[in-house]
């Protein structure tokens, strides 16, 4: 009931605010940017095209950041001094500089040097950034496994690889899953930044539409709702997976 009242109050405030601005709401113009029908065929509008780009970027970044995260976590816990130093340097560098700067660096400096496109640069920047945070999650999950498990493996003559592969990681992954989900949600939100290097993701498409039509409020509301649906759906799926 309280929640409902707050929503009503907020809606009223927004309504009054826009009225004072003299904003002309034109919601009916929005749907065609999502989907249109032509000759009975479904044609995706620019916002849906943007969503697909966002999903592609996120999927690749998710895969790569999981890989970076796991490798970094294992390096940080390894016996090798060089490995630990490398992992440490990577973490400090990534966590202490802005993602936007990393993205620009990837796009303007790194990408031309090695010859990857803007899509590759965007994915790489995002994966390196999220990978640094994912590695801390992996590490926390791995160190939470009882020391006795390691000792049992050692006493049976397992190699370090076998110990991780068959004993430690299968147990750690169950504990890692919930915090990793919030990291993926963060990834989806952060992916909006790739619009700054002219990748036509959901956010970029929104900017283009607005500059052409001045439907500022309607389009940003719609885009925010799409991101919200995406992340809430993801969290819900993850929750169901964990509880089964």
């Amino acid at each position: 009931m309280k929640f409902f009242l707050v929503i009503v109050a907020l809606a009223w405030l927004l309504y009054r605010g826009t009225e004072r601005l003299g904003y002309n709401w034109q919601w009916h113009r929005v749907p065609k940017y999502l989907v249109t029908f032509e000759d009975g065929k479904l044609i995706l509008g620019p916002l849906m095209d943007g969503l697909i780009v966002t999903l592609r970027i996120c999927s690749w970044s998710l895969l790569l950041s999981a890989l970076f995260g796991l490798v970094t976590a294992l390096l940080r816990m390894s016996d090798s001094f060089v490995g630990r130093a490398l992992a440490r340097g990577y973490l400090e560098l990534i966590r202490n500089t802005p993602l936007l700067v990393q993205l620009f660096f990837m796009y303007f400096v790194f990408a031309p040097v090695v010859g990857i496109g803007r899509f590759g640069a965007g994915v790489l920047a995002l994966s390196l950034f999220e990978g640094a945070y994912a590695s801390e999650i992996f590490r926390a999950g791995i160190v939470s496994i009882d020391k006795g498990q390691w000792e049992a493996c050692h006493s049976l003559g397992f190699s370090t690889f076998h110990t991780y592969r068959y004993i430690i990681l299968p147990q750690a992954i169950r504990r890692i899953f919930p915090p990793l989900t919030s990291q993926v949600v963060a990834l989806i939100k952060d992916s909006a930044l790739v619009s700054t290097v002219a990748i036509y993701d959901l956010t970029m498409q929104a900017q283009v539409i607005i500059s052409e039509t001045f439907l500022t409020f309607e389009v940003w509301f719609t885009v925010a709702a799409i991101y919200l649906i995406l992340t809430v759906a993801l969290s819900t799926i993850a929750d169901t997976l964990v509880s089964t």
């Binding site: 006795g148 498990q149 000792e151 049992a152 050692h154 006493s155 003559g157 147990q171």
Partner: peptide, 19 residues
């Protein structure tokens, strides 16, 4: 590693693999 293959150990806390 070779020694560990030849030496079995049983712990106070069992340390079985729960999964």
């Amino acid at each position: 590693l070779e020694i560990r293959k030849e030496v079995g150990m049983v712990f106070q806390s069992f340390n079985l693999f729960p999964h």
